[in-house]
Amino acid sequence: MSIVDRRPWVEKYRPRTLDDVVNQKGIIKRLKQFVKDTSMPHLIFAGPAGTGKTTSALAMVRDIFKKEMLPNVNYLELNASDARGIDVIRTYIKDFAKARPPVNTPFKILILDEADNMTAPAQQALRRTMEKYTKNCRMILICNYSNKLIPPIQSRCVVFRFSSLNNDDIKERIKLIASNEQIKVNPGGLGALVDVSRGDCRRAINYLQSCATISKEIDQDIVLCIAGEVPPDKIKEMLTIAFEGQLSFAIKLLNDLIRNYGLSGRNIIKNIHREVYDMAISEDMKIELSKILAEFEYRLSQGATEEIQLQALLAKIVLLKG
C-alpha cells in the first residue's frame, strides 16, 4: 500500500473476518456456523464496551458477503448518531427490510448498533418488521444493556452475551499491533496497559496509540501518564498520612503528585476513589469517603479552583478518621 494508513488503530486493526476475532470463542464458533449454513436467526449482541460486539457483527457481514459489502444494498449499519426514531423505523428501515436482496445474496443484514438507546416506541415499531421480512433481511442488534430492549424484541432474537476480554487476550492484541507499528512495549508498560484498559480492548488500543505519539518505547510511566493515573502506592501513601492526621504533610504529597504526574484535580479524585474499596477502614467510612469525593468532584466539574478544593478535600479526609 503506497498511502499510509492513517486511520485510528482501533479501525486499522479491527479484525476483518470471524477468523481474526481472538476472543469470545464459543460465540464466534456459532457465528461461523451461521455463515456456513447461510442461515441465521436475528441476533442480539450484549455486553460491555470494547468486547468485540460491533467487530464480530461486521466480520460476520464480511464473511457472508465475501468482501462485497455494499452499504444500503446488502447491509446497513446504523448507530446512535443516526436518526432512529419511530418514523425512521417505520419508513427507512422498513423499506430496507422489505426490498428483496440483490441477486446471489442470501439475505441482507441490518446492524443496529447501540440499540439500547432506541426508544421503546421505536423498538415496538421494529418488532413486526423483524418478523415479516425475515426472508429478506436479518438483524443484529448491539447493546450494552439488554434489559433496555423490550421483551418482544428479545424473544425474536438469539441473545449472545459478550464478556470482558481477559488480560492475556488484550496482551496478545497489543503485542501484535506494537510489532506491526514498530513500537517497543516493555513488560511494565504492557501490564499497565492491561490495567488501565479494564477488559476493554478498544481502550487498550487507544492508549497504546496515544503512548506511541510520545515515544516508540513504552513503559509503565508513559502509560500511567497518558491514562491520567498515578501508581496506586503513591495515592495510598498520601491517604495513610491523611488518616494519621498529618494534614500539611498530606498536602505536600498531593502537590508532589500534581507536579510529577501532571494530573488534573478530577483525575486525582478518581485515583483516590479507585483505592477506596480496598482500604483498611470500616465500610461506613468508605461510603462517607465516597460521598465526600462525589461532592468535590462535582465542585471541580463546575469550575471550582483545583488547589482549594483538593486541600479542602484532604482536610475533610483527615477529620473522617478522627
Partner: peptide
Amino acid sequence: QAIAKGSDFPDVVLLNNLHRD
C-alpha cells in the same frame, strides 16, 4: 437453532450464556 449449530453437541457454557433478561 443457536445451540444446535456449530458442533455436534451443544455447548453447555453457551447455553447458560444465551439467556434473555
